[in-house]
Amino acid sequence: MTAKPLTKREKSVRRHNIATLLALTAFIALLVRSTELVTLPETVNFVAIMTLFFAVITMFMTRNADEYVAAIWRAGTSTAFVFTAAVLIFLPFTEGFIDGLMGYENGQDIDASDASEMVIIASFFVANAWARLRGTY
């Protein structure tokens, strides 16, 4: 039995799925490196950042390859948007509000730039995986 050639749409969906896996792998490598639990060489950091960059671009270019892929992409991006607003705006605001109520003058203890990128990207991958495993609604 000979395998039928893949349709253009199917190829595009595969590109998106492979890019998602590569991006996730690169993100995990960056996450492991940032925790400093494991000492990874500087090369790993560079390769992971470049892989993440090109994989995200590929994911963006193929996000409408299929309505199912589009639904998964929307699940990830909408969750990441909420986390962006929460981490960059509401978290520092809440900290300032609580400091104001309690009368502290510690300044900003929770720096939004510390782990915000990792939290936002992680929220995308968690929502993406959740949509694939549990459904897109």
């Binding site: 039928k4 749409r9 199917e10 969906v13 299929d66 199912y68 892929v69 639904a71 897109t136 609604y137």
Partner: peptide, 29 residues
């Protein structure tokens, strides 16, 4: 699933997701 997907102009993964109830198809689909 691949044959049905080709006739509907969607991916095999989309057909699988609809069959398993993980994705509700759009109105055009």
């Amino acid at each position: 699933q691949a044959e049905l997907a080709a006739q509907l102009d969607v991916s095999r993964q989309a057909v699988n997701a609809i069959e398993t109830g993980k994705h509700d198809p759009s109105l055009p689909l």
